[in-house]
Design a protein around this nucleic acid. Structure first.
Lengths: 355, 355
DNA sequence: TAGCTTTCCGAAAGCGCTTTCGGTTTTGGA
DNA sequence: TCCAAAACCGAAAGCGCTTTCGGAAAGCTA
């Protein structure tokens, strides 16, 4: 509502043409140092800033990037969104670009929404989270040759930019760890494998199980919804089965927390009678009962990374050159331990939290 | 990148003037039904959509709203942000408006950033979270007579729109509840009271303490940072004092979770030896040790509410008429109980979670 | 000092829409 | 049949900027 000075007014005030003032401000070389400084001073004095809408229309550059909100199944909020947005914002604000968040009502019309978004000219690039193995959104972007970057990877990720954590390797790490502690019946609690990350983690689990000489038992794989309730249900079913597992690896901390509840509600102690390892490294895992052992993602501001990479691509960089794979670390808290045996109580020892 | 049809092309194709086509599409009454339909059909056929940037420039309506990301002290992500954005997005997308998130590097230059934002013309309204008692951002908006709505309330909240939960009343409820269970030394763990919500809750605490005939003891009030660590430290100090409290009310669940840790680490059982009540109703509170009793905010999509109200104000509604106060409910889980006495073990009884 | 570059700036044409204004056709009433 | 009022539509002027183009002024060489 506060009135701003227009380019025209500034130009009149200086006795120059609008175009001249514009060029002076935008660093064109055909403006003498003298007038350039004169213009810049006046602009500063009056607090002149070019109207972004007008500039965007004239230049054809949207100066904005969209983040596609993942459709959270279950009403649970996605804890990472806020951090990611913050990092993205940091990156974009250095250029004075806008960050806008987009979402569609239903997941299935996301591609449609996306193609409208990119053809509307409102944004110069897009950030995607949590891709599926075969992701229609990525197809849309790819076909339109529109700049984008993915937080995660789909199956065919060779030709676009992404930032991901090697959760497959992480799950190998987790299973190896459990095997080393004597476990041989290790269950996997996951989410539908059209999510790329769920497949990755399942693959890691399977590989590690087999490379440790155990047989991959389909019975030990439970696919469920991505929530604490889902985890609790899945773990409960497994525990109640004829030949229950002695350890769980879960695709997210949220599910793992549910698994802890299932174990406790059956009168057992997680970390002692049954081990649980989650994935994400959520801070709240420090406060569960018992504190949750987890595969912790690098805490770094992935949003910042994604933003910087996307901008580089918008500037003409080759997407293929912006692919970054980080790795997760096993963060041992208290929900894992050696396999339980009759005389385990004497073997069970307290541990401090380690990295 | 996909090429769109321009108004000009569409007009040429139809043999009409650009202005006519524009008016036909925008429902002006001076277009005959016949040509209006002809135009609409053609538009549909070619998938014509007006370029938003051009429309915004021409009409002077930004068709966008900004959400100001709260500066999270401590690296903890704000769990509510994602939900709130989602609700806001729902509301805005019905009009085809954009939602953009803005943030400043440091909290202190938020007002400056805000005034640049609103004078830039990029947005038609602003949503603010977590106001301070005296909030410079609100001042800026108010002075500029710019449409905005606050998620929470500052001290002088009579003349603007807000959506808030009556956390003061909630804290009265919590203290009354504890007193009814025999507690008389009830501590308050809070965050700096320049945050409006922190002050509200402290006020509720103080009122309830006094109305229950207890004396308000400054020693029992601990102000600390808004994190689990902060809560743990504060609770620890209190517990280690000469005359420790038998119950805690905490300004957020996050802090309350820290308090639980402090209690456990001193060999006591939260909910039995010492009671803890948090605020927020975070779902993860179901999984702490023990499950956290808390003051639960109405789960409804506050983002949706905020969005709808802000739009109404942008449409010319009187901000004063958009003030909504919801109330929080005591959600009893397991971290509260009767005051502990030597023979309490016999009195202590199991409870199921209730609303 | 003529002639050729450079340097520097003004003018004007967009960018893709909206909206006012005025003029031409139709229509309706007498 | 004539005239005023509707009903319709075209033309044009923006919105506030950018960017190309061309020409005047200034600088340089010979």
């Amino acid at each position: 509502m506060s009135e701003r000075m227009s380019l025209k007014q500034l130009a009149n005030h200086l006795g120059l043409a609008e175009g001249t003032v514009s060029r002076a401000l935008n660093g064109y070389p055909d403006i003498s140092l003298r007038t350039r400084e004169r213009v810049q001073n006046a602009a500063r004095e009056f607090g002149y800033k070019a109207n972004p809408l007008a500039r965007r229309l004239a230049t054809g550059v949207a100066e904005a990037v969209a983040y596609l909100m993942p459709h959270s199944q279950s009403a649970m909020s996605e804890p990472f969104v806020s951090q990611l947005l913050s990092g993205l914002g940091d990156s974009l604000s250095e250029r004075g670009w806008d960050l806008l968040v987009a979402q569609s009502v239903a997941a299935e019309d996301e591609p449609e929404m996306l193609s409208r978004l990119i053809s509307s000219g409102r944004v110069s690039g897009v950030v995607l989270s949590r891709p599926m193995k075969k992701d229609a959104r990525i197809e849309v972007l790819r076909r339109a040759k529109f700049p984008f970057i993915v937080h995660g990877r789909s199956n065919d990720c060779a030709d676009y930019a992404w930032y991901d954590v090697d959760s497959r390797a992480a799950f190998v790490k987790a299973v190896d760890h459990l095997v080393a502690m004597g476990h041989s019946r290790i269950a996997f609690i996951g989410s539908p494998t059209y999510f790329s990350f769920a497949q990755e983690r399942l693959d890691g689990y399977r590989d590690a199980v087999q490379s440790n000489g155990l047989s991959f038992d389909q019975e030990l794989v439970q696919i469920t919804e991505l929530s604490d309730d889902g985890g609790e249900r899945a773990a409960g079913d497994l525990l109640d089965s004829a030949d229950p597992p002695t350890a769980f690896v879960c695709v997210t901390d949220t599910q793992a927390i549910g698994a802890l509840a299932a174990i406790r509600s059956r009168g057992m102690v997680p970390g002692q009678h049954v081990s649980v390892i989650g994935y994400d490294g959520l801070r709240l895992g420090r406060h569960t009962n018992p504190p949750l052992t987890t595969l912790a993602q690098p805490q770094s501001h992935s949003g910042r990374q994604l933003g910087d990479m996307l901008l580089a691509i918008i500037d003409g960089g080759d997407p293929k050159e912006f692919q970054e794979l980080r790795s997760a670390e096993l963060l041992r808290r208290k929900s894992d331990g050696p396999v339980w045996t009759a005389n385990s109580d004497t073997m069970f020892m307290q541990r401090e939290e380690t990295t």
